[in-house]
Structure formats: structure tokens, C-alpha cells
């Protein structure tokens, strides 16, 4: 049933909050080297789906697996160690530590664990990759908004994840920064990383994603290439509302 080269597979994943079904029977696969966009209107359950994959929440039903290994009931730290790394919708950095140490957190405790000078070098390499090498010894409060986002991305990359979950990583950037941000993610895509993007910025989705899953009210309503799903009448209705709504 699972696509043969799937890295991450969701089958029938459901999460309820009291009477509200936030994620309802979600199933999809992410294949290797694929950038997948998870899109949908506000409150459609995208972030909850991401939280279920990363282990911030546990699903009430269904399975999530990473190359066939079940993740669904594991705590967040085990999921991170197995190779699923995420950024947060509201950037979370470690305020008392330098930028380099922030990135080192990923290098030391993530999927591939390093220590000592190996961890330092790796963290530094990741910082250079996101273009922040010169700020390695700054503290987070001295950084601009996009730079805090870059630090978080570098921390995630430093753990050598099998799959990256980027939760609205491009949100809140100004037009110049947005261009830089898209270029950065494109560079990751060209490296062959496997990525799930939760995103609202349509330009980014069109130019970056190989495939999209569209959610509305907790349910998957469409799946396919960005061009196909964005012209799907049901998706348009979900975003713009019914005529009678």
C-alpha cells in the first residue's frame, strides 16, 4: 500500500480535541527527495498534522511511519532522533545561548549525534549554509527576524534529518527576505532533501513543491502537483468559501 520509496507515510491519522476533529483520517506519502506542500485555509489542521508527525501531539487513531518504522506513539525526542526535524511556527531559539550553540543543539542530539569539535564544525558548516557564518557568536536577541528563522533552519539541518518539517517558515518575511528565503529552500531541495512545507505563500508553493496535499476542516480534499490542486474547484471553494457562505 505504501509507495515503495516513501520516506514518511500517514495512514488514517485522526486527532480529536474534545468534540472537534482537528485532523480526520489523513493519509499521504512523502517520497525521497520530494518537497511536499501541506496547504489549506487557516484552521484546516495543517499545523496539527505537523504536530502529530513531530510528536508534539499523539494521534487518536491511524499510523505514521518513517520508512516503515512506526512513529505514532513515540515521544517527540525519539521521533527527532529517528530523523524527523521541525521548525516552529513562532520561531523558538535558545535565548541564553550563542547562535552557534543554538545550531549545535541539533548537531549534538539529533538524528546523527556528534560531539566535541566535530559538532562545532558541523554546526558552523550549517550556519554558513544558511548564510549566517559571521553571526556565530551573536546571541539571538541581536538578530533580525529572518536571521532568527535561518538559525532555526540551521539547527534543524544540523541534525541530518531524513525529513524536514517547516511550519510556515516563510511567513512574516518582507518581499526581499521572502526572495532570499525561497532561494534558501530551493537550495535545500537541490541538495535532495525531503521536506514537508506548511505554507500560505502561494508563489513559494508553486516554485518549490513537487506535490501538494490540500486540507480543509481537518480532511484531505486534494492531492497532486501544485498546478493541478490550485486549479481544482474544490480547493478554490475551500479557500474562497462557497457562494452561499
Amino acid at each position: 500500500m505504501r509507495a515503495p520509496n516513501a520516506v514518511l507515510s500517514l495512514r488514517g491519522v485522526t486527532r480529536r480535541f474534545g468534540g472537534l476533529v482537528a485532523v480526520n483520517d489523513m493519509s499521504f506519502d512523502v517520497t525521497e527527495h520530494e518537497v511536499m506542500g501541506l496547504i489549506g485555509p487557516n484552521g484546516s489542521g495543517k499545523s496539527t498534522t505537523l504536530n502529530l508527525i513531530s510528536g508534539a501531539l499523539a494521534p487518536n487513531a491511524g499510523t505514521i511511519s518513517l520508512r516503515g518504522t512506526p512513529l505514532s506513539q513515540l515521544p517527540a525526542q525519539d521521533i527527532a532522533r529517528k530523523g524527523v526535524a521541525r521548525t516552529f511556527q513562532l520561531v523558538r531559539l535558545l535565548p541564553s545561548m550563542t547562535v552557534l550553540d543554538n545550531v549545535k543543539a541539533g548537531a549534538v542530539f539529533g538524528h546523527r549525534r556528534r560531539w566535541g569539535s566535530e559538532a562545532d564544525d558541523h554546526a558552523m558548516a550549517m550556519l554558513e549554509k544558511v548564510g549566517l557564518g559571521r553571526h556565530a557568536f551573536a546571541v539571538p536577541s541581536q538578530l533580525t527576524y529572518i536571521d532568527t528563522k535561518r538559525v532555526e533552519l540551521a539547527r534543524v539541518l544540523a541534525s541530518d534529518p531524513k525529513i524536514l518539517l517547516l511550519d510556515e517558515w516563510l511567513a512574516g518575511l518582507n518581499p526581499t527576505e521572502l526572495g532570499q528565503g525561497i532561494d534558501l529552500i530551493r537550495a535545500l531541495r537541490e541538495e535532495g532533501r525531503t521536506i514537508i512545507l506548511v505554507e500560505h505563500v502561494m508563489d513559494a508553493i508553486r516554485s518549490l513543491c513537487d506535490a501538494c496535499v490540500v486540507m480543509a476542516s481537518g480532511t484531505k480534499i486534494a492531492e497532486g502537483t501544485p498546478e493541478a490542486v490550485l486549479s481544482d474547484p474544490e480547493v478554490i471553494r475551500a479557500y474562497l468559501g462557497d457562494d452561499d457562505a
Partner: peptide, 23 residues
Amino acid sequence: RLGFALRIIGDDETVARHSGINT
């Protein structure tokens, strides 16, 4: 590594968990 893990936990436990630390 334990000391480093604890500094991370002290700053933000959610980040610590999602970085793979058994807090």
C-alpha cells in the same frame, strides 16, 4: 553532553524535546 542538554532544557524545553533530548 548532559550539561549541554540541561542548558537547552533550561532555555526551552519544547525545543529540547524536538531536538532529540530525553528531557
